[in-house]
Design a protein around this nucleic acid. Structure first.
Lengths: 348, 348
DNA sequence: GGCCAGTCTGGAATCGTTTCCAGAACATTG
DNA sequence: CAATGTTCTGGAAACGATTCCAGACTGGCC
């Protein structure tokens, strides 16, 4: 590579060295079969010699494609998201896409401006657990969008089987003798929270159990700790938390108050973040294929972008974009209860 | 906002509606004082009416600036990094920059290609704990670069006061009566690992303690668990780990083998990731201002980009770029030992 | 009233690439 | 050998914004 140190080498430099026109360079590199083998070789040699790499910005301008995807999520501080992002990033790179990341700090009001700001530099969006209202998100969808951990028609989505997870968790608790349990709810704006609650209600009522719902808290350790006293005051023998962080906050506060887990109170989390296995007692929780969510999300988005009328919202009355082609697919990844040490038989 | 749904509104549309030329629209929006107040108002009204936002790609092409910064890091799965990235992201957004993220999966060979691939779409790089060789990184530096958690001349860097942290940790252990301790080293390619080891050696020898170094392991829980047996076999009463994940792996394996922590063996981590406080026993560890690292990194990078000869490497014999202006600043953020439950007096 | 300075504006060039179009070169066929 | 078709190539336009330059207009001043 002999490229001048500071100055970028352009297609014209290659053209000059190869003794052909810029158009031919472009063709030789983009679609080698459209030029004579001899020119192809000359161009490719020249390009290699100069260390030429096409300017993606200039290319974007004319093709309208950026080869970037935008990822918007509420909080990197929640270990759930980095795992998903990592999977997204890996899969995106494999497909030659780069990832533009925005953390909205759990603030719904930041989401729409953030999407708008990124819109021009990406070919599509992956919205992880978006907090804004359905209508707002639909209104801002000029680019293809895939939603993770939430369903918003008409976007394709990837969600976890929250109901299934809750069913497993509840029947586990039921088997241990628990009959009255509590749920510590996450953010009101979280679709996963609503979905988990829905599944939980169905599961408990199916088994004739009593469910006491405890207000919405931030999906953090602090949020869980804040709710712990309310839970302790309720006549329950077990508690399910919106997610692992909340569960950890609960356990921490229980232990600080001398409430034995699982001796006096069983605790179940959701997500199976790394730390769940490490705390004392290790947390019983519902595992989600986080990598799968990220990976499938990327695939869905790429399919959507490749689809014929690849705008964010299909135009009114568009031909049926079959879910098979990524049109408005709804993928559900399985969940699985991981029984660890934070749940046990009901006391007495 | 009356913009056509699918078609992007360009500067020409605004110009037409406002009855002025494109140049005037550009001036009115970029630098309102350079046009007559009346034109300014007409343009601004028209722009608002059409929902015009300048196309950043087109702008990049002519200005050469992208308003993106590239972040490269080894593993989002290590909770240390999401925290740093979150701070980076927040600070970048505040300065109107977007963040392009790449996770290299701890593979040095991925780093350079990743940087090269991103180079054209960013104005500068933030390399978090890069694993590649100094020379490779210098060779790939066409854009301004700031290095986090490592020092590579001539790049500005932000590092933690590893030596100071180790000194605190060692004197804590010394006060508890420990005299022979072990260090479980992280990746050989990690500068932080070498820096921590350096500080550790200095601190132990200053206090006349014996240090037994145990091979390089992956900076993960599994890595720590893998080293645990070696540690247990060594004649030590305490062990310092490269980072918290390794420490957690050690503790986990010790407990599995019935070795009491801190009863028989004290364990100290590094980083103070969220989970450190939650495990049982809670981990004594050295805290780093992770947010500060990210924030300062962004500030340094922005200063570097704004600097006169803002190429990656200053040209040979460049005028002294004072560290004050971000030239080749070396910022060190303080560390602090957090004493929790995984350390205690030496047995007997 | 004329001249100069200053303000404001429009047109054109530019960034680097892709793509359309038309023409050149060559081969094929009658 | 002419007519036709095919392959390959170069020039030019285009993407959308910024910026340079020169011209138009205004105002002030003598």
């Amino acid at each position: 590579m002999i490229g001048e140190p500071g100055v970028a080498v352009t297609i014209k430099d290659v053209a000059r060295l190869a003794g052909v026109s810029a158009s031919s360079v472009c063709r030789a590199l983009a679609d080698p079969d459209r030029v004579r083998p001899e020119t192809r070789d000359r161009v490719q040699t020249a390009a290699r010699q100069l260390g030429y790499h096409p300017n993606r910005v200039a290319r974007s301008l004319i093709t309208g494609r950026t080869a970037n995807i935008g990822v918007v999520l509420p909080d990197l501080g929640n270990p759930f998201f980095p795992t998903v992002v990592k999977a997204i990033q890996t899969q995106a790179r494999r497909r030659d896409y780069a990832v533009l990341l925005t953390d909205t700090d759990e603030d719904p009001a930041v989401e729409v401006p953030a999407i708008r700001a990124l819109a021009m530099q990406v070919d599509g969006f992956l919205l992880c657990s978006p907090r804004a209202a359905d209508d707002e998100l639909r209104a801002v969808a000029e680019k293809p969008m895939v939603v993770l951990n939430r369903r918003i028609s008409p976007f394709p989505s990837v969600t976890a089987d929250n109901s299934g997870g809750m069913r497993q968790a509840v029947s586990h608790l039921h088997a241990l003798g628990h009959r009255t349990i509590s749920y510590v709810a996450g953010p009101r704006t979280s679709w996963s929270n609503r979905d988990r609650l829905r599944g939980l209600r169905a599961a408990t009522s199916a088994l004739g159990m009593t469910l006491i719902e405890i207000g919405n808290v931030a999906p953090t350790v602090a949020g869980g700790a804040a709710a712990a006293d309310l839970v302790a005051a309720a006549p329950v023998t077990a508690v399910l938390a919106y997610n692992d962080l909340v569960a950890l906050g609960l356990v921490q506060r229980f232990q600080a108050r001398g409430i034995a887990v699982p001796g006096q109170l069983s605790v179940v989390g959701f997500d199976d973040i790394l730390v769940a296995a490490l705390v004392g007692p290790p947390l019983t929780t519902v595992a989600i294929g986080k990598e799968q969510i990220g990976r499938v999300g990327v695939d869905l988005l790429l399919a959507l972008m490749a689809a014929p009328g690849a705008a964010g919202l299909d135009r009114a009355g568009s031909e049926r974009a079959g879910p098979g082609r990524g049109g408005r697919a709804r993928r559900v990844v399985p969940t699985q209860l991981i029984v660890r040490g934070s749940t046990g038989p009901v006391a007495r």
